[in-house]
């Protein structure tokens, strides 16, 4: 049963990264769009994510609930030492979700208010994945120090280091990439399709650059990511698969094969997460001094795990079909248009 729970945790994280990431990415793309084209980008992304953004963000809630029910010690350690980045991420989620809803549901579309909503939306779309990445990076950076005595050591340097920050930037680039790929398929004219293709390529290049920086930063912080990833066969295979599909999608992108490139982009990001996830599995959080919080050592009592696993399995029977139908229904429209 513990494996069921762990699988759901991994699933929730991956899906949040893909779906939530693409959501945030839409704002990032808007941030880097010229004033002239902004309204069009906005319209496309509203049509694309309007019906599904609330559902996309539920994966985060599922992940959090699994964490505090099944792995309470790991959860409370993260909440304590990564309090500040979590807080900033929360503010980002709040600002973004409300700005998105307000700008679409404000009954009077005033210019000034819309400008404020747009500003809040794009900046928070940038900040949130940045801090999500920082949190993920910090979990494995070995910078959380349970014996820290000063405020800075305990609550700031636990996350403010080269490694975590580069992981954050990498996350931003990946989110932008996912969104651009997604928007290519949603655009309703050639001009926009071309625009989003350019954006996708730019974000992809950025992702590769930031990815490289992550490796350099890991050397500076003595994390030796390269050694770690290339040293185990599963991660290595995943990285290779990601690279091949990266090359393939560059070729397909120009042909505008939206389904294939969407799947390809999702596959790439999943492979990256798999490579990183597998590399430190079963440790979710790595602490300074070598103590690691393993999913197998710090889980809730068997009874809780059992009930939770049953709940998750039953719940997914309800959720997954309706979720697919939601995506399917709002996908169909664009083929008609």
């Amino acid at each position: 049963m513990l494996y069921v729970v762990i699988s759901f945790l991994f699933l929730a994280i991956v899906l949040y990264f893909l779906l939530g990431g693409a959501d945030f990415g839409a704002g990032i793309i808007e941030l880097f769009t010229s004033e002239k084209n902004k309204p069009r980008t906005r319209k496309t992304s509203y049509q694309a994510i309007g019906p599904i953004w609330e559902a996309n963000h539920m994966w985060l809630i599922i992940a959090v609930v699994i964490m505090f029910v099944a792995f309470p010690t790991i959860y409370s350690t993260m909440c304590t030492y990564l309090h500040i980045p979590l807080l900033i991420m929360l503010l980002g989620i709040t600002a973004r979700g409300t700005a998105f809803a307000f700008r679409n549901y404000d009954a009077i579309k005033g210019e000034n208010t819309q400008r404020i909503y747009n500003k809040v939306f794009v900046y928070s779309s940038f900040i949130t994945p940045l801090f999500l990445g920082i949190i993920a990076g910090s979990a494995i950076s070995r910078q959380i120090d349970l014996h820290a005595t000063s405020f800075l050591d305990a609550y700031i340097f636990s996350w403010l280091n080269y490694f975590s920050v580069t992981v954050g930037l990498f996350t931003v680039a990946l989110s932008g990439y996912l969104a651009a790929i997604y928007l290519i398929g949603e655009a309703d004219n050639d001009h926009d399709v071309r625009r989003f293709i350019l954006k996708a390529k730019a974000m992809n290049i950025l992702a590769v650059v930031f990815g490289g920086l992550v490796f350099i930063a890991s050397e500076i912080e003595h994390i030796h990511l390269a050694h770690w990833i290339f040293g185990n066969p599963v991660s290595l295979t995943a990285v290779i698969a990601a690279s091949i599909s990266l090359a393939a999608s560059w070729m397909l992108i120009n042909k505008g094969k939206r389904k294939i490139i969407r799947v390809g982009a999702g596959f790439q990001v999943t492979m990256i997460l798999l490579a990183v996830g597998y590399m430190h599995y079963p440790y979710l959080v790595m602490i300074k001094g070598g103590q690691n919080l393993s999913l197998f050592a710090y889980h809730a009592p068997a009874k809780t795990i059992e009930v939770l696993a049953l709940g998750l399995m039953l719940g997914s029977l309800l959720i997954l079909p309706s979720l697919f139908y939601l995506y399917y229904s709002f996908q169909k429209r664009n083929e008609v248009v």
């Binding site: 609930v65 505090f68 029910v69 099944a70 809730a300 809780t304 009930v307 939770l308 709940g311 719940g315």
Partner: peptide
């Protein structure tokens, strides 16, 4: 968490 988590998961 492990004790009163059930309603949260269903929620």
């Amino acid at each position: 968490g492990p004790i009163f988590g059930m309603p949260f998961s269903l929620e």
